[in-house]
Design a protein around this nucleic acid. Structure first.
Lengths: 158, 158
DNA sequence: ATTGAAAGAGTCTCAGT
DNA sequence: ACTGAGACTCTTTCAAT
């Protein structure tokens, strides 16, 4: 997959543009970056072959779908050696969308997306309580997401 | 944008499939869901018109691009009324990809993506220190991302 | 609302530079 | 490595159901 690869300015510009909008046609993107559509095509193919570009995902308005609540939960483990088994159990809870193993205050840090407070309460009081090895948890409910943007990769010139 | 809309099982299935892979052709997706490509097209158009589907984004392997470090930073504000001005200042720091206003331990919670520890140190010791109104911060460095998946919307049948 | 077919647009390949 | 044109595939529209 990941042979080492030199990415030039054009590669980075393509990635940067398509991280925002992956539907733009090669011809249009070529115009924007002053090359032909064929060149865009070759570059994207190269990026895909090297595993840098892994595909495209639909950008969905979760609030419009009724998923109003995002919460972050810091997890304290009884022993840090329990990480792997607890991680497996957490993965079974569908409301948990992300799990990170972290340094600092918590042993692990999870993100939860729910339709309402009842569903969040269920996750916190039922689903998580059933998992062995969790000492306690600390919940941060997001009242507002001020921004959520892509990594700014465009500053790289090579 | 968001007239109230009834989404049926087919709509949810389309969303669910395309959240994973937005490149699938309407014909192929139609086969998978036992309808014609034309029907897929009509549904997606409806979802776009109602703002539920907002477009597609490139799925990029950030590690392959050299962005190895994800960190979460809990921010304590001197006064919670400072939220808006601090939020504006944080948005100017390109390494910060996400900002949430939260209940619980911290006033605000941010996610940072960096290429190396030096860049993270710069964000923590220089960029953040310059911002007025932040009392202190607490950093969680992600050692491993166990999973990061989409919201599981497919259980909805209507 | 869904379908199938025709028209239009985009992707992909390749020979030439 | 980039280009432009031809072949191919996908999207989009639309008349019929």
């Amino acid at each position: 997959m990941a042979t080492k690869l030199n990415l030039d300015k054009l590669d980075m510009q393509i990635i940067s543009e398509m991280m925002e909008d992956a539907q733009i046609s090669y011809a249009d993107l070529g115009k924007k970056l002053f090359v032909s559509g064929g060149t865009i095509h070759v570059r994207i193919k190269k990026l895909q072959e090297h595993g840098i570009v892994k595909g495209t995902k639909l950008n969905v308005d979760l609030k419009a779908l009724g998923y109003d609540i995002t919460a972050f939960i810091g997890v304290y483990l009884e022993k840090s050696s329990l990480y792997d088994t607890v991680a497996k159990d957490l993965q079974k809870i569908p409301e948990i969308v992300r799990l990170n193993y972290t340094t600092g205050n918590y042993s692990m840090f999870i993100e939860v997306v729910c339709k309402d407070i009842n569903q969040l309460r269920y996750v916190l009081h039922d689903a998580l309580q059933k998992i062995k090895g969790i000492e306690r948890t600390e919940t941060l409910i997001s009242l507002e997401e001020s921004f959520n943007r892509k990594v700014q990769v465009a500053s790289n010139l090579a």
